[in-house]
Simulated scan of single mutants.
Amino acid sequence: MPEIMIKTERPFVEELFARYETLIGRDFPGYRNHVYRTITYAMYFLGNAEAHERLVETAFVYHDIGLWTDHELAYLEPSEAVAIADNQKFGLGLDPDLLRGAIHWHHKIFPYTGPNREIIEACRKADWIDASKGILRKGMSKAAIEAVEAAFPNLGFHDTLMRLAKDYGGSTLVGGIKVTLGIVKW
């Protein structure tokens, strides 16, 4: 595997985010850093291949966006819909099935083995690393995770998820159950 490559500037990510920063509001800094961390992890698993970078960046900008666009705890399908619509509307030129798959399967518990496995699996592992705050490392070194977390601090992202679970679900418990049923894939 290559060394972890930390890019603190991603102009394409910022271009995509520009349309949603106001909507995401106070949650934006934490979500932005979550996106940068997951992109960094996924690109590591893809050998930092530039050919995959635009797809990975797009998938992660949109992967949780349904939390804010649709106020849904079952946010995978709304997130996919926004990503696919923007891909077409703004002529991003990405394979819609691959973009949808990277978003749809990013919470899959077991390894993904379907079409586009390499990219979708890299995205899945990346999100699990970040969702678990590095407890699940998926083969990545603890030092690499610490370097990425130092470059892109959490800024309350995981607290935001708990708040949204409570706000949208009525309570943290009910929201947590709705999130689990709505987004976790086997």
Rank of each mutant, 00 (worst) to 15 (best):
A144H: 04
Y168D: 01
L136T: 12
A18P: 01
Y41D: 00
W105F: 15
A143G: 01
A165R: 15
P153N: 09
I24D: 03
I84R: 07
L164H: 03
S171I: 11
P115L: 12
Y75H: 14
D27I: 04
D86N: 07
A150Y: 05
G114E: 07
F152N: 04
T113I: 14
A126V: 05
V184D: 03
S79E: 01
R19D: 05
I103Y: 09
G93S: 08
Y62W: 07
F12K: 04
A147M: 11
L23P: 06
E9D: 14
Y168M: 14
E53H: 13
R10Y: 05
A165M: 15
S141M: 07
A85S: 13
E118V: 05
L67C: 06
H104S: 08
I65Q: 11
R124W: 09
F12C: 06
I84S: 02
I84K: 03
V35W: 12
R137V: 04
A51E: 07
Y168I: 15
P153M: 11
H104V: 05
S171C: 13
M140S: 04
V35E: 02
D159Q: 13
S141E: 09
E57C: 10
Y44G: 02
N116R: 08
T8C: 03
M1P: 01
I183C: 12
D86S: 08
R163P: 05
G93D: 02
G66D: 00
D27T: 02
G134R: 02
L55H: 02
G176H: 03
E146Y: 03
F28A: 09
Y62M: 04
A83N: 04
D159R: 15
R26Q: 02
V35A: 12
D167A: 15
I119Q: 11
L23I: 14
D70Y: 14
A147C: 09
I24F: 08
D86V: 09
D130E: 12
G93Y: 10
R137N: 00
F152M: 04
M5T: 13
I6S: 01
K142G: 00
A42K: 03
L92V: 10
K138Y: 09
V35R: 07
A42G: 01
P29F: 10
R32E: 10
V184M: 12
R26V: 00
